[in-house]
Nucleic acid binder design. Structure first.
Lengths: 189, 189, 189, 189
DNA sequence: AATGAATGAGGTTTCATTCAT
DNA sequence: TATGAATGAAACCTCATTCAT
């Protein structure tokens, strides 16, 4: 791993533990085992570090969420993998959400906005593909409209579940409950 | 309006325009037409101001969203009012979301967490009521499970639409599209 | 004296002793008996302090140099006052030159350039007046050209003398020598 | 050209463009096409570079100004060459003045003071020679005093013209005007 | 001899908070 | 109760200099 990544990983660690304002350059430097000045050889300023954290997750999350989801798989397999991935993601990587929420709260910055927008649209496209592939293989018969309904609904559901988990609500759904709901939702027309 | 409210309103105005870090006490004081020191007669510190902004919206938003939704209305009327309210809210009050996202990004603060949690749970309860009332009036026949499915799905959809709007995505749904989707979703069992 | 002036005077003191780079805000604050932050209530940044130092001298120096030189005085009196003033200035205020030279070395800054330019032109105008008044009173008969020659020559002489003094050259002229030279120069046509 | 000279020339280039504070070692290194560390093989520290820049110009400027001025030339020829040289110098090498002014503003450094002092005295000596030679050849009859008057006046005039040019004043003298003034000045006694 | 990544002291600047009036 | 000038800790960032390679 090169030094820039080391610093970025240290910054992520600090960011997750503290928050943006408490993400002091001094602490990042200490965590990364470098001098403060070294940070500035790799990042123009502190904001840039945050942007790269966001960037990192913006690539990492969809990669993780859609891992192993492939055109050649049959529809149901892909669906099950998706639910599995989501379940693992929501359990193991709860913290990454903070980066998104922080990003969303600073949305007037065009670059941040674009990162978040791109990630969202990219994820929606990948999600839609699952249904388009199903159509192609005659495993499903989803109209353009129903795909829109289903993807938005599924994604929304995921947001809600995640938020409830983060907030420690009591009625968070378990994996098999989620699974049942997804089965219902894909019948929406 | 008392002085504390004046300061809070000024703070909200500044927060919406800028963000938390740029919400300088000097600017709030100027906007509120008071001296900087005066702020500290009404708020212990700056964080307290943010907490109260969050509090304000935590009451305001559900109030707005569920305005005129009443037990005595029939089911369809309530649903239409809800969609109307949401549509207005998302158009007129886009900015309030920033406060939530900022709040979510500082979730390790127990008080902030509790405010957000309470609001979410409160809103879900109000949403569920619509379906429970429908059952009571024999206008619907929603099982406990289907109410859970429907409320989570609807709320999730709302989140997605709002996020897409904030990020300036192109495929944001219009009110009648949303309406159609809601009609579909309430059939989920 | 108000606080801004106090800080400025402290800054001048430090600037004269050290130089621009060693004119640390911490030292200025200490010298002025205020906190570092206080400086920034009165000056936007450190450069601004230097600009105001330059501004201060840009007003102070011509004021000093042309003090008591008046239209009603006869020509010779004005000339003698000028030589006197110059002599005192060069003896008592040698240090102010550092500010000018520092200014000249940063001439790409438009504001600094303008301050220096204005001062120079202002001083030349005041110097020319002495000769114009003499004409008006029939005490002299200086053509436009000869006034130009004389003022430039006199001013240049002053610059040279000052520079030699600053550099500690041995052949610096004494007041009566200067006086004799001035008497010669005003005969230039 | 050896490496030290390359670095020095690069430093001069940077210094003329920027100013001392913006004359970053990183930029000098880049401009010279060497590594930053290499600079420290040839110069003890950054100040040393500036001292050598001053040194360079302290030799270069008199060399340029008095080029082709020789004992064997007749008085008027030397005078014309001088005016020519000055004219070219002031047009082509305006920037070098910045180094002098910067030097003058840091005059408490003994080495810098001495460089500037030596240059000034050296130039005055060369200037005086022109008149001494004229005496020797019976082309003129300048007393010791009049030589002093004339050299100081001429030099001062040159300073004023240069300063007005640098500051962008409008009444800067053209070459033939200067020439006429010089003709007048050499008649001073 | 040359490199250039790494250093870290120390500078400027910010701004929430205080407190004498 | 209200003020707002003053505070000063602490943040970010710079850049001349070093030193292992």
């Amino acid at each position: 791993m090169d030094k820039k990544s080391e610093i970025l990983q240290a910054a992520i660690k600090v960011f997750m533990r503290e928050n943006y304002q408490n993400m002091k350059t001094a602490i990042i430097a200490k965590e990364a085992g470098v001098a403060e000045g070294t940070i500035y050889r790799y990042f123009k300023n502190k904001k840039e570090i945050f942007v790269e954290i966001l960037n990192y997750y913006s690539k990492y999350i969809p990669e993780y969420l859609f891992e192993n989801i492939k055109q050649k798989n049959d529809f149901e397999t892909n669906l099950n993998i998706l639910i599995d991935n989501y379940d693992k993601l929501s359990k193991e990587h709860k913290n990454f959400k903070k980066a998104y929420y922080k990003g969303l709260s600073e949305i007037e910055d065009e670059r941040i906005k674009n990162i978040l927008k791109f990630t969202l649209e990219d994820s929606f496209k990948r999600l839609e593909n699952i249904f388009i592939w199903a159509n192609n293989k005659k495993e499903g018969n989803f109209t353009k409209t129903s795909i829109e309904v289903i993807t938005n609904t599924l994604w929304g559901l995921a947001e809600v579940i995640m938020k409830k988990e983060i907030l420690g609500c009591e009625d968070v759904m378990e994996k098999d409950e989620i699974s049942k709901m997804v089965k219902l939702i894909i019948k929406l027309k």
